[in-house]
Each structure stands twice: as structure tokens, then as C-alpha cells.
């Protein structure tokens, strides 16, 4: 038996909207620790790892771990029917083939429920080791989205290089070249405008811009995004889901010829 009541129900919609264009079907794993989702995109270039902690829920009961396979497009359709301030409650039986979403308006004057069919999905679960990253940059999520969008209009790949001078995003294409450098800024008046760079060693990696741009669909989740890079390993692009969990994207670097 699963029962989970999330006061900030809109968080679920934001998470699903952020990943549904990369992954069509996925298992949402539920256990006493909360909700998690791990899935590779259809071309197996990137990996999505989401976790929502049980204590993020006003009420959370999960009698035994379960895997709920679902179409993320269909899940997005259901969650789109929730009001932006609605409280969302999920209910599922241990051996059922459906999950029910109940949406309650904050004034309790409207209640709706939607039953979503579950599906069996074979998925490969990968172990993600803890990594000591050479460079970690925490920047406004909107700024990251803008850089991805701007550079995508010029080229297909981006070199992200972190040095003591800052983090430089470089691309080139038929139009020409483009460089954007982000420097540490911890003195901005608003905390949401601050950029923090933690550099242990210089590092430069090349990535396909279309994936980095896709990750920016998580922008509504958080004020900041954190990019963590180390040599010859995937970049981790992390959005905190307030103090409730995280949504992480891993992207394999491109290997230069």
C-alpha cells in the first residue's frame, strides 16, 4: 500500500515536465526513503536521477518497495489537470496495475482524482559512484538556460572549461563562434543572482548542446543549478528540489577525434 500526500503538488509536474522529452517510459521506484526515478534517455547518452525524500511529504506510507512503470507523457497529462496550488495525493495498492492521483484545492472546495494505468518496464539500473569533482559551479538556473539557448543558435557542441578565471562556454558553427564566461559572484544583492565556483583543478569537457539545453527544462524547479565536472567523466547537472530532494542529469562527454 502506498499513500503519499504532497502539499506542493506542483513540484511533481515540474519534475515530469523537465524529463518527459528525454525519457518516454520510466519506473518510479517507491520505498520507505521516498520516490526515485533513474532512467537513460532513448539514445543512452544521458542519465536522469531524481529523488524526493519521504519527509518531503506531509503523509507518507509505503508498506513495501514498489516500482511503478508509467508513460511520462501520460503522467504529464494527468498532472497538468492539477491546479498550481493543489495538494496531490498518490495512492496505489501493492499488486495493483494503476496509481490514483487525487488533487485537492487549497480551500478544499474542489477535489478530483485520476487513475493512471501502470506498465511493466524493463530498465537497467546503474550505480552512480560518489565523485570528487575538479570543478563545481553553482549558478542561477535562468543564466544556465540562457547560455544553452544562446549557444545552441550558433553550434551543436559546447566546450565547458573551468579555470581560475571562471567557467567558459565555447561553441562554433557555420555562423561563427561564441564564448560566454561566468565568473564567481558572491556579492550580488539577491542570493538568487549569485554564482559560486569551486575549482580544485582546471578541467575542460565537450558536450552536445541539445542535451544540456534539454536539462534546462528543469529551470522552474530551482533558483540555481550546479554543474560538476571532472576529467573524462560525465558532467552532473543538478537542480535541488527545494529541501525535498534533487533532480540530477548526467551527460557523457564527447570524445574529440
Amino acid at each position: 500500500m502506498l499513500e503519499a500526500r504532497l502539499v506542493q503538488g506542483s513540484m511533481l509536474r515540474k519534475v515530469v515536465d523537465a524529463v518527459k522529452d528525454l525519457v518516454s517510459d520510466a519506473n518510479i521506484d517507491v520505498s520507505s526513503s521516498g520516490f526515485s526515478l533513474q532512467a537513460m534517455d532513448t539514445s543512452h547518452v544521458s542519465l536522469i536521477a531524481m529523488h524526493l525524500r519521504a519527509d518531503a511529504f506531509e503523509h507518507f506510507r509505503c508498506d513495501r518497495p514498489m516500482s511503478m512503470g508509467m508513460s511520462l507523457a501520460n503522467l504529464a497529462k494527468v498532472l497538468k489537470c492539477a491546479g498550481s496550488d493543489d495538494i496531490v495525493t498518490l495512492k496505489a495498492n501493492d499488486d495493483g496495475d494503476t496509481v490514483t492521483f487525487m488533487f485537492e484545492s487549497p480551500k478544499e472546495d474542489r477535489v478530483s482524482d485520476f487513475e493512471l494505468k501502470l506498465m511493466d518496464i524493463d530498465s537497467e539500473h546503474l550505480g552512480i559512484p560518489d565523485t570528487d569533482y575538479c570543478a563545481t559551479v553553482t549558478m542561477p538556473a535562468g543564466e544556465y538556460a540562457r547560455i544553452c539557448k544562446d549557444l545552441s543558435s550558433i553550434g551543436d557542441t559546447v566546450v565547458i572549461s573551468a579555470t581560475k578565471d571562471g567557467v567558459k562556454f565555447t561553441t562554433s558553427g557555420d555562423v561563427g563562434t561564441a564564448n560566454v564566461t561566468v565568473r564567481q559572484n558572491t556579492t550580488a544583492d539577491k542570493k538568487e543572482d549569485q554564482t559560486i565556483i569551486d575549482l580544485k583543478e582546471p578541467v575542460a569537457l565537450t558536450f552536445a548542446l541539445r542535451y544540456l539545453t534539454s536539462f534546462a527544462k528543469a529551470t522552474p524547479l530551482a533558483t540555481h543549478v550546479t554543474l560538476s565536472m571532472t576529467r573524462e567523466l560525465p558532467v552532473m547537472v543538478e537542480y535541488a528540489i527545494q529541501d525535498m530532494g534533487h533532480l540530477r542529469f548526467y551527460l557523457a562527454p564527447k570524445i574529440e577525434d
Partner: peptide, 14 residues
């Protein structure tokens, strides 16, 4: 895609 490796080669199957 050209020059692009699969993410699964970086993480062990668990």
C-alpha cells in the same frame, strides 16, 4: 552520434 559515448559505460550496472 559521432564522438558521443553511452552514459552506461561510465556507471556500473547495479
Amino acid at each position: 552520434p559521432e564522438g558521443q559515448t553511452s552514459i552506461s559505460q561510465y556507471f556500473a550496472k547495479s
